[in-house]
Design a protein around this nucleic acid. Structure first.
Lengths: 179, 179
DNA sequence: GAAGATTGAATACTCAATCTTC
DNA sequence: GAAGATTGAGTATTCAATCTTC
């Protein structure tokens, strides 16, 4: 139904080739890219102002707060917080300086490091959570109907599933889509 | 329909307060935050590898390529590319060094600066567009049904509309949502 | 030697301050 | 003096190289 033969260009206004984006697809894509470029800044601004945290830092602390013993291995935490291990390591170093997190060597396997949420860290998440939830509500959820929220959730999950399976398209695949 | 009284915590596992996120809302939000943290990296990786561009740089060049005379005032271009003027200015400086864009003072109002896409810049966008479209297709569109694509587009537009109206929630509004 | 994690160098982003033209 | 734009300082992110423990 979306693929009704209407073809629109994403990119230069000429050169419309075989399987370009349909009108619906283009519309969706433009919305997504604006979202990717605008939403993180807006959410970071609220968190930074009210709790001194970035979105990623919040994701880290929040992930720890809902885990057993408030403790998670670094590599697992990176997955939970949707970031690279390297990024996580840097962030945990900063959080450690602020006494929000502690690192301990994993008692079972000395190669692994466990990140532990401190009491201070817990308090900060508990304090920050309502404001953050309100921002998410205001910026993301409130503009949508219940049906749209549900649908957005499902679409997002689909995309993330695909992303985790295959994070970057192969070079060969990028010049003509598989179809 | 989503707000059926089921209450789930986003944040610490205790402290479930009055108007927290419903199960559906929580699900949607987790998907969105993962998207915000994972998708830019994946798209940047493809663009960087195949064209030496970031997603934002691509948005800038692409916006210029579909504009009259391939020319847009900086402040307008910032809007089109969904970035701040400051960020745009830095990026245009880099693009100028690579001869992909030129700056000229606006002939009408000397305070304004016009960004102009060079022939080289045009060629690069034309060359990069198919690969980028394929990546968007593979990572974002293909995992979805046509109906999901359509719905995602509408939801995204709603959220972006809200974002442009009110980029950051007020401090007062963040501790209890307006409802 | 391989898995898990950290570090450092290069690059990019943000915010506030500044500059120019109207 | 205000609008439009740029610059610079401070901070964050990424990638490759390194270190440690198994």
């Amino acid at each position: 139904m979306a693929d009704d033969g209407v073809s629109a260009c994403y990119g230069p206004a000429s050169d419309c080739e075989p399987r370009w984006l349909s009108a619906d697809e283009l519309e969706a894509w433009k919305a997504v890219i604006s979202l990717l470029l605008l939403l993180p800044g807006a959410l970071d601004a609220q968190l930074q102002r009210d709790a001194g945290l970035s979105m990623f830092e919040y994701a880290v602390l929040s992930s720890l707060s809902i885990s057993d013993d408030r403790t998670v291995r670094m590599s697992e935490l990176a997955e939970l917080a949707s970031g690279s291990l390297s990024r996580l390591s840097n962030v945990v170093t900063r959080l450690e300086r602020r006494s929000l997190v502690r690192r301990i060597p994993d008692p079972v396997d000395g190669r692994c490091t466990d990140a532990v949420l401190t009491d201070q860290g817990w308090d900060l998440v508990v304090q920050a959570a309502p404001g953050h939830a309100a921002a998410v509500r205001q910026l993301v959820l409130d503009p949508l109907t219940d049906a749209q929220v549900h649908s957005l959730g499902e679409a997002g999950e689909q995309i993330v599933r695909q992303l985790r399976r295959c994070p970057a398209p192969r070079a060969e695949a990028t010049h003509l889509q598989p179809d």
